[in-house]
Computed example of a mutant assay.
Amino acid sequence: MIYLTMFVCFITSILITPLVKKLAFKIGATDKPNKRKVHERVMPRLGGLAIYLSFLIGFFILQPQHLIPEEPNAALAILIGSTIIIITGILDDIMELSAKVKLGGQLAAALVVVIFGGIQVNTINLPFGGELDFGFLEIPITILWIVGITNAINLIDGLDGLAAGVSSIALITISGMAMMMGYGFVAAIGAIVFASTLGFLFYNFHPAKIFMGDTGALFLGFIISVLSLLGFKNVTMISLIIPVIILGVPISDTFFAIIRRIVHKQPISAPDKSHLHHCLLKLGYTHRQTVIIIYAIAAFFALAAVIFSQAKIWGAFTLVAVLLILIEVFAEKIGLVGKNNTPLLKIMRGLKYVKDNR
């Protein structure tokens, strides 16, 4: 049933997207070129609505709510939260809402999931024994995770097919791992959103005929954040790191964007053209090559998450350490923080110099 539903979602997304494109032009949900953007012509941006509608059809066909008896309100909360996010995204795609209003919509959606749905990070079993109970912080931490990941996906939506492709890789990884761990609800939701996104990607890959807009980026970020909570909550600290690794591309890009703005004494919310995809474009890669490179990086993180999930404690710690070093070296190589902010590369050059002059 799941595979048939995925096929229906995929075909529905392909059929609905051209209609959404016409609607976007009709209601003025378009993206105009400017100095910060890569495209050079007016583009329709409402594509996330096609993903959402396809997801809804898949949800009502599959009716996955019976797969999560321990969280009876979770399915309805996800539907309500998703609808709030979609409305926020549509309004932003039409009239460009202020950052505060967009954040308000995200917080409202997160609160529905956390309060009504009961989806919260409560405790973590520590690797060397004992348990960490978040207590009164469990709600703020859960909301911070949902809002943070939602915005991280939104931040990487800068090239044709980029956010859709990276999200698809994250969704199929979360869904596959959830299936192995026996979380049927997470696997089902992840699968139908993946299929819906893949159908939209048919029109969104370079050269794009339509953008997903904030409607899509916020929806995908919201769904991914909630599914990762459902699939990996109330487990060990090692397991809690799994979704962080799966989402390595958007999380690291967001992290370095914050560091970059702090270093350059800019507001954290200030837009710029120094994100991962911008840096790769500056290095001479084409639009399509840049997207494929980032897909490959996202797939590498997904594979690392699978390996991490099977590793022993010390193996897991070693893998994380190696990943962090690789991320830092790569970030410094392409200039994610700035051309002159390369502390690790400087240390490596210094060690090489010492070695060569012994």
Results as ranks from 00 to 15, higher is better:
Ala302Leu: 06
Ile307Thr: 11
Phe232Ile: 10
Leu240Gln: 09
Ile246Arg: 03
Leu324Gln: 08
Arg261Asn: 07
Leu276Trp: 09
Ala302Lys: 01
Leu218Asn: 11
Cys279Ala: 13
Gly221Thr: 07
Leu283Ser: 13
Ala270Gly: 07
Ala316Met: 04
Ala257Gly: 08
Ala302Trp: 00
Val249Trp: 05
Ala321Ile: 14
Leu281Ser: 10
Phe317Pro: 00
Asp272Trp: 10
Ile297Pro: 01
Ile246Ala: 09
Thr286Gln: 07
Ala298Cys: 11
Gln289Thr: 14
Ile241Arg: 00
Ser228Ala: 13
Ala257Met: 04
Ile259Val: 12
Ile259Tyr: 00
Asp214Ile: 08
Ala311Lys: 08
Asn234Arg: 08
His278Arg: 06
Gly221Leu: 00
Gln310Ile: 09
Thr290Tyr: 02
Leu240Gly: 14
His278Phe: 03
Ile262Trp: 10
Asp272Ile: 11
Lys233Phe: 09
Asp253Val: 05
Ser274Val: 10
Ile223Met: 12
Arg261Met: 07
Leu324Lys: 00
Ile224Pro: 00
Thr215Glu: 00
Ile242Asn: 02
Ile292Asn: 00
Gly216His: 06
Asp253Arg: 01
Ile307Val: 14
Arg261Ala: 06
Phe317Trp: 13
Arg260His: 10
Val263Glu: 04
Thr236Leu: 01
Phe317Val: 14
Asp253Trp: 02
Asp214Cys: 08
Thr286Gly: 15
Leu319Gly: 05
Ala299Met: 14
Phe222Ala: 03
Ser269Tyr: 15
Phe256Ala: 12
Ala257Val: 07
Ala311Cys: 11
Ala304Phe: 09
Asp272Asn: 10
Leu280Tyr: 00
Phe256Trp: 15
Ala311Asp: 11
Ile293Asp: 01
Ile268Tyr: 07
Thr290Glu: 02
Ile251Leu: 13
Ser274Asn: 15
Ala321Met: 14
Leu218Ala: 05
His278Tyr: 08
Ile224Ser: 01
Lys265Thr: 10
Leu303Ile: 15
Phe211Pro: 04
Ile224Tyr: 01
Leu230Glu: 06
Ile238Gly: 06
Thr318Cys: 09
